[in-house]
Design a protein around this nucleic acid. Sequence first.
DNA 1: CGTTGGATTGGCT
DNA 2: GCCAATCCAACGC
Length: 209
Amino acid sequence: MVHDDSAPATAADYRRSTIDYRLSTGSPLPRAFYERPTLTVARELLGQALVRVLPDGTRLGGIVVETEAYLPGDRASHAFRGRTARNAPMFGPPGHAYVYLIYGLHHCLNPVTEPAGVPAAVLIRALEPWPGTPRASGPGLVCRALDIDRTLDGADLTGGTLRFEATGLAVPETAIACGPRVGVAYAGEWADRPYRFWIRGNPHVSRGR
DNA sequence: CGTTGGATTGGCT
DNA sequence: GCCAATCCAACGC
């Protein structure tokens, strides 16, 4: 079931870039946040902050406005054919990063979810960037904007230079839209499942395809 | 060991 | 709307 982006938004606040960039508690989301069903994590990451601290202390980041869930047994998931060197982080403990290179030139960031041993993750598809952070609408752009590459593959997201932080932003159910994931047409019946989530009407959500 | 194509983007038609 | 860029895992021989 696909919710229509044009439906009346009860939360008009989300129709513009009105999210206060100061929203961020500075405290990383705990591992328990990630150790839950992936669809729940994908929805609840909306409205949280993704923070990247560069070696020189620069603090880049933004509010998560678009995600995709990749579930255990999911034919669209990199882990579908079993564990490999590339997808190993997906099989590891939750709250770590799975960062991979796509099309030879773009990186994609995925917080690992579910208990260790259960391969699943959430693709971060778009952020509403803080002032000073470049636009990040699209999974490759998120990584470019925050200088994320495979040196961060496997990184612990509950501390360190790459982390998600609580904002206290309560994104109401009515402000969340969902639909099929982008670029997974090869995944048979899994392709149509509404595992992509975004903040309804937010201008930083990627166009998708 | 060679081939194929992807959880993408941006520039050109 | 179409396509090149460019790496590497997966799969077939």
